[in-house]
């Protein structure tokens, strides 16, 4: 019955997943990439560049909402500082652009690295904070970072900076189409990672942190390390979502990079879709993102956050577990 012995605790071996699980995960990744490519082809068939501009924002929110959910949904730590991680990615792109412009994919990797490190740092600094205190700390972090960027002349300070993007990319064509394609693939990657986490040892560990940290420790879960993994992965994807942003807007200033809308949307989307599974943030982002884009065109761009607010209140009252929660309840 007993197997424990000395010196074993230090090791942290991840049991290899069964081959069938590995195959299922590969299938899922292939399907996600296929959906991303289909979305690209569908947007192309419309023959109007505006579809790419609007679609890009929705895809960007799929990444942000999925990233937020890895920390907020899986471990229960509510991050109000999405804008800071997003802007860190965007501004690292600006810095790279000014120093040595590299291919967009490299910018995304660097943006992910920078925001991932910020996530790790925030994790370390806020480890003792739980619940609402953690959330306030992330909000404060966003304010501090915005102040730093506003006073950093190299990236344009409060005036902002222009980023001239190439007109076209070989094979794909127009640059906005390229941005759309890259963001679609990034969304596929983010969703795949979230799903991988969900069914894994890591995902079970995250769930115990959300449920009861003391009981989790007593059951052998290294809560500290897992929280750091969550803040790092979540931050990294937010940074990756932000890295192409300067090329999308071509003019970036702190007010747009650190826009409150990122924080609000990345919380509202998973809550509306459902925080328990990878599908929730995707559904929420597509739903809210599309409604916002439609409202921007048909009514006014100022209506966005109001709409999000109203929808969120409706869901909190009528469906606290989001759309996925409603669907699961239907099932016998």
């Amino acid at each position: 019955m007993r197997r424990g012995d000395k010196g074993s605790a230090a090791r942290e071996n991840v049991a290899a997943p069964a081959p069938s699980a590995a195959r299922r995960s590969a299938t899922f990744l292939a399907a996600a990439v296929a959906v991303a490519l289909l979305a690209f082809l569908a947007a192309r068939s419309v023959g109007n560049d505006y579809v790419f501009f609007a679609g890009y924002v929705v895809l960007q929110y799929i990444v942000l909402a999925t990233a937020w959910n890895i920390l907020g949904g899986y471990t229960g730590y509510v991050n109000f500082g999405t804008a800071a991680f997003f802007a860190a990615g965007a501004y690292s792109s600006v810095v790279l652009h000014k120093l040595v412009p590299l291919p967009l994919v490299v910018h995304i990797l660097v943006g992910g690295l920078v925001s991932g490190l910020i996530g790790l740092g925030v994790g370390y600094l806020t480890l003792r904070l739980r619940g609402v205190f953690f959330s306030i700390a992330t909000l404060a972090m966003a304010v501090v970072m915005q102040t730093l960027i506003t006073n950093w002349e190299f990236v344009g300070g409060s005036r902002g900076t222009y980023v001239i993007r190439p007109a076209a990319v070989p094979i794909v064509g127009d640059y906005i189409q390229y941005l759309f394609l890259v963001m679609a693939l990034l969304a596929a990657l983010a969703v795949w990672v979230a799903r991988q986490i969900e069914g894994s040892r890591l995902g079970y560990g995250f769930a115990t942190i959300r449920d009861d940290e003391v009981a989790a420790e007593a059951s052998g879960v290294p809560t500290l390390r897992l929280k750091l993994i969550a803040t790092t992965v979540s931050g990294a994807f937010m940074g990756m979502a932000g890295a192409p942003y300067p090329y999308y807007v071509t003019y970036l200033d702190p007010a747009s990079g650190f826009n409150l809308a990122y924080a609000v949307n990345s919380i509202a989307m998973p809550l509306v879709g459902g925080t328990a599974t990878w599908a929730g943030p995707v559904i929420g982002a597509i739903l809210l993102g599309s409604i916002q884009q439609l409202a921007t065109v048909t009514i006014s761009s100022a209506l966005n956050l109001l709409l999000v607010g109203v929808i969120l209140v409706g869901f909190v009252i009528a469906a606290p577990n989001g759309i996925m929660g409603l669907l699961q309840k239907r099932r016998p």
């Binding site: 197997r3 071996n13 560990g205 052998g220 879960v221």
Partner: peptide, 13 residues
């Protein structure tokens, strides 16, 4: 949870 994180963290567990 303990099967993954206690037993699973031991060598060969």
């Amino acid at each position: 949870i303990p099967l993954l994180y206690v037993v699973g963290a031991r060598p060969g567990g």
